[in-house]
Design a protein around this nucleic acid. Sequence first.
DNA 1: CCTTGACCTTCCAGTAACTGTAGGGTTTAG
DNA 2: CTAAACCCTACAGTTACTGGAAGGTCAAGG
Lengths: 153, 153
Amino acid sequence: MNISQAGDASDLSPKTIRYYESVGLVRPDRLANGYRDYGSDQIRELVFIRRARHFGFSVDECRQLLMLYRDPGRESREVHSLVGHKLEEMNRHIDELVQMKSILEQMVSACPADEGSECAIIDSLAEPEPVGGVKAAEPVPVADDGQNAREGR
Amino acid sequence: MNISQAGDASDLSPKTIRYYESVGLVRPDRLANGYRDYGSDQIRELVFIRRARHFGFSVDECRQLLMLYRDPGRESREVHSLVGHKLEEMNRHIDELVQMKSILEQMVSACPADEGSECAIIDSLAEPEPVGGVKAAEPVPVADDGQNAREGR
DNA sequence: CCTTGACCTTCCAGTAACTGTAGGGTTTAG
DNA sequence: CTAAACCCTACAGTTACTGGAAGGTCAAGG
């Protein structure tokens, strides 16, 4: 099976499949002419990766899942723990988004949305103090996860 | 005010501030020795940007918000519309995450999490058919937003 | 036999939003 | 006078791809 057939079978672009190979996920055979040759096991692995990516796993996490997938002696609790951590991460991410969303919604509803220049949204973004009923535009240090690391100084 | 003071005042790293300058957001004055010099208006703009970024606006959207912020003749409905679109986007994003999350939760609860190799999570990622009560592991084409563009062929 | 089109290959560049590092100048405190 | 702690620029690396260039291969049609 050549790469575009593999792409059709796994619902990935040939480009993406080559990329996954370049980062060490799926290593196909090569034909005499240098073309990649995929077997059905490899197709299954590509599908596995597409699904895992779809569920929010990073390529690196996919690599780990793939190792577990390939290992007949794996312990299901390893998989469980990996995915459990991912779920916690997703929950934190969702919580943060929902929080941001509701504050934005308050801002939007407080904005007149007319031809005037006065705008509660702009004010909220510019001012540290609550403006027009929008409380805590600064949702206080919500467990800084190291995203805002300061430059070493 | 030099760049690290500006960083303290705006809660951004000097690195990030330089980056924002390099992409055309905030252009400070320069002292005779070449050091950047920030005024209080610029600090306010940096804070404005940090907030907007925190609420999920891209740097490019920050640029637009900043233009509206600076423009005394802006119309609040422009701001309203920009932020409204962002909110819709966030809602779509949250919906998708929540969907993925609940499927992963089903998988996790179906996994024995012991020393055995049998694992519902691995099976769900590998198999196209519903396994162990997990329905629709493939959440059907949910408005493909062009992320999965196929290679031109 | 030759050409055309559709594949295939590799490699390099670009995306977003920074962070890290190198190499070098300046300022300030001891 | 020197060492720390700044400042500057510029380039590389990160993530997960996508796009494009340059060139090889293969099957079909004239």
